[in-house]
Write a protein that binds this DNA or RNA. Structure first.
Lengths: 240, 240
DNA sequence: ACTTACTTTCGTACAGTGTACGAATATGGT
DNA sequence: ACCATATTCGTACACTGTACGAAAGTAAGT
């Protein structure tokens, strides 16, 4: 080789065209792996919240130094994207026996909410310009395929999914705050007694969130149904 | 005097029963004020985003030291709450000439979105366990009063507002990300060509957000209308 | 003017963050 | 043994919120 000077080896992630390449399977349980790092980060976020996720804490969880992680993950932002994508591996599509597009979307909304409740930090991540990865894209593609079987053209399907996605994300992002122990409204202000309706607002906030979610979701689905139903193509029961 | 040792004076904010007390009017333009601090923080967040808001940067903007701010604001969390509440001062109620509850809520949703677009960091703040202050409470009380005039009982009004609030917040939180220059989906993954429907999803994301917002909002309002209309009391045109 | 009480400002310090840089070590092929 | 490469680590820098105590400014009483 002509260059006798020892080239500094490029870190592995620099060889990848993007964050999402080369998710190799390396099952050594002791060594560092991208998967192990992401899993530790997810576990940490589930336990102590997104703000508690730091490179140093993840590293100490894995009994490695902070900088060692940077050989498997180019930056914290990429790590967060990987965490986001990892949550989509447990995302379940509507089962094949659902009756129509409305039931599919109902299932999609609830499954999204369940996933977000398991990992509340995801709704925060989504508001911090993430880049969605292959697992998410796969799920989305599959859902769009399901819906198109029920006679929805892609344009409509996309609009429906988008609206529901935004709604569910907004709901879950705020729901655990409403449910938290911190008072949502300044109690000093409410104590003046000048705001009786808001006071009742707060009492009703104690409604089970599942119930509020189902009601609002049905409002949305009802509105969609009455708007869309004229434009449905006949479902693809034919040979294809 | 028995205690010759000079007592350390308690800082002013310690004398207040909460963050929201004693928003006094001190119009000296050079001296520090809670209002000036909050205004500087809001301006900074508007310009460079919520992540760029730091005590030291605000202080340097006001040509003061970092610690000087802590005499007017107990902590950064309280400062963020004050910023949040400040945005409600520009929030406009539905004008008195709107026809019915649906139009009122339509106006409310659009006004919320306009406000959130002026201050995109608010949707982030809302997901970080804030405490809503007097301006917000005032607005909410007034809106509830407006709605009750159209024959909505408070229980229903609260459910409607809650659902719309969550939807609008979710929409705006994600809309500026969709609109950003960063690719939302990994282009490396899409380049495989395995996900044609998602590819179309992205193209359609270029739809003007106002249009998507109005459509989804109407879905929600339509669903609400068909659900609620049976339970309307006659509007209060009587003496009161 | 001088003292005293109090308010407001500031400097320093500490623990934490992401990560750039270069040195140290481990690993595997010849 | 040698050496190219892969992996790990220690140190350092700029930044964060804020605890603590000293300093400076201000107003009232004598």
């Amino acid at each position: 080789m002509s260059t006798a000077a020892p080239r500094r080896p490029k870190p592995r992630h620099a060889d990848r065209s993007s964050t999402w390449d080369g998710i190799s399977v390396d099952n050594a349980n002791n060594g560092l792996t991208r998967e192990r790092i992401v899993a530790a980060a997810v576990a940490l976020a589930d336990k102590d919240g997104l703000a508690a996720v730091s490179i140093r804490k993840i590293a100490s969880e894995l009994e490695a130094s902070a900088m060692a992680l940077y050989h498997y993950v180019p930056s914290k932002r990429d790590l967060l994207n990987l965490m986001l994508d990892a949550t989509y591996t447990e995302f379940e599509l509507p089962p094949p026996d659902v009756a129509d597009w409305r039931a599919s979307l109902h299932h999609f909304a609830w499954e999204s909410r369940r996933s977000l409740q398991r990992h509340p930090w995801v709704s925060l991540l989504r508001a911090n310009d993430p880049e969605y990865g292959p697992q998410c894209i796969r799920s989305l593609e599959a859902l769009l395929t399901r819906l198109s079987r029920f006679g929805l053209d892609i344009r409509n399907a996309i609009h429906l999914i988008g609206a529901l996605f935004v709604f569910v994300n907004g709901f879950v992002a705020l729901e655990d705050i409403y449910q938290g122990e911190q008072p949502l409204f300044s109690e000093a202000v409410l104590a003046t007694g000048n705001f009786p309706k808001v006071a009742r607002f707060i009492q009703m906030g104690a409604e089970p969130p599942d119930q509020a979610f189902e009601r609002a979701l049905n409002w949305m689905l009802d509105g969609m149904a009455s708007d869309i139903k004229h434009q449905l193509r006949p479902p693809k029961n034919r040979i294809r």
